[in-house]
Simulated assay, not measured.
Amino acid sequence: MTHLDNVVALLAHFSLPTPTHRRGSTLPPHRLPHLPGQVAIPEQIHTPSQTALEWFNHAPADGVEQTLLTCLRSLRWAHRIAEHRPYPDLDALLAAADEAAYDLAHADLAEALAGEPMPTLPADTYGAAHTALSAAHAAYEARFGHVFVICLDGVAPDELLDRVLEGIRSRLTNDPEDERVVAAEELRRLARQRLTSLLRGARPY
């Protein structure tokens, strides 16, 4: 059986919400401002002789926190990282980001999860896969009350579908508290990936 067949079979054991389902009923109201899913440090913020890290270290806190919220949508996480500037190098910044992510309370994680988009797949992914994924995401949200998150850093484009399907299949059977721990780790990895891409001038996703 393929991953797609396995996911379809597993979903039969879960109660699916209606097709109009968008978010689990236990999600808190989303109180963060609307932010784009992809950002880059604006060109005007630094001169050719100023690195992105130098801008990050010395820019106004409000602007830095808004930038950080595009990596992980937790106000507490963004404020803590901005407050502890300056950082001598990217490794020090990433270590601080990891530490702040590990320290997030349950309410902070709920806030971050509420702001996460679902994992995206290549545009040419076939229709049956999108249908199965929509059902799988709906089943996951109905069970755990938040969107499915997974860090796909380093995964080849032709392996994204299998990786997402396998992730949903394996994690749907988790106990809710165990899944909260897994989701928190995936958020930490996503934040690290996005922050690295941003500070190196790439577009995080």
Rank of each mutant, 00 (worst) to 15 (best):
P17H: 04
R200M: 09
L16S: 14
H34L: 13
T70Q: 05
D153Y: 08
W77N: 03
L93I: 06
Y102M: 10
E54W: 05
V149F: 04
L195K: 03
D158Y: 06
D124K: 08
P29F: 09
E43L: 08
I45D: 15
H3N: 10
Q38A: 10
D124H: 07
R180G: 06
P29I: 10
A9W: 01
L90K: 04
L69G: 06
A128V: 13
A61Q: 15
S25E: 13
D158L: 06
R203T: 15
D98M: 09
A191G: 03
L10V: 12
E116D: 12
C71H: 04
M1S: 11
L121G: 06
P86Q: 11
T131S: 12
G115D: 04
H21V: 06
G145V: 09
P17N: 02
G115P: 03
H21A: 12
P33I: 05
P29A: 07
P42I: 03
A202V: 05
Q38G: 04
G145S: 03
L69W: 09
E83L: 13
L198R: 07
D98I: 10
V164K: 00
L27H: 08
L113N: 06
E186W: 00
A128G: 15
L94Y: 03
W77M: 08
S134F: 08
A96Y: 01
S15F: 03
D89W: 10
A9F: 08
S197D: 11
N174G: 15
F56Y: 06
R143W: 01
A95N: 14
L121M: 02
L16R: 11
R85H: 10
D108T: 08
P86D: 11
T196H: 11
S134L: 12
L152Q: 04
L69T: 02
D62L: 15
R73F: 02
R189H: 05
D103R: 14
H21R: 14
R163Q: 09
H34F: 11
D158V: 13
P122N: 01
L32S: 10
Q193P: 07
A97F: 03
T196Q: 08
W55C: 01
T18Y: 14
T20R: 12
T173F: 04
L10H: 12
A12I: 02
R180S: 07
C151D: 08
A78H: 01
Q193I: 05
P36H: 01
L93G: 01
L4R: 05
Q44I: 14
L195T: 02
L53Y: 00
R22T: 15
H146C: 02
A132I: 01
L187K: 04
F14V: 02
L165N: 00
L121P: 04
R169M: 09
I41D: 10
A110L: 15
I150C: 04
L104E: 02
V64I: 12
A191Q: 02
F148I: 09
S170M: 15
R22Y: 05
H84T: 14
A136M: 00
L152R: 03
R23G: 01
D153A: 14
G145A: 06
E166W: 13
A183C: 06
T125I: 07
L161C: 02
E99V: 14
Q50V: 13
A138S: 05
A114H: 05
E116R: 09
I45K: 12
R203I: 12
E54A: 09
T67E: 12
R192L: 09
R169N: 15
A82K: 06
P60I: 07
G127N: 12
S15M: 09
E179P: 01
I168M: 07
A136W: 00
L10G: 05
P60D: 05
G167K: 03
E65N: 07
H21F: 15
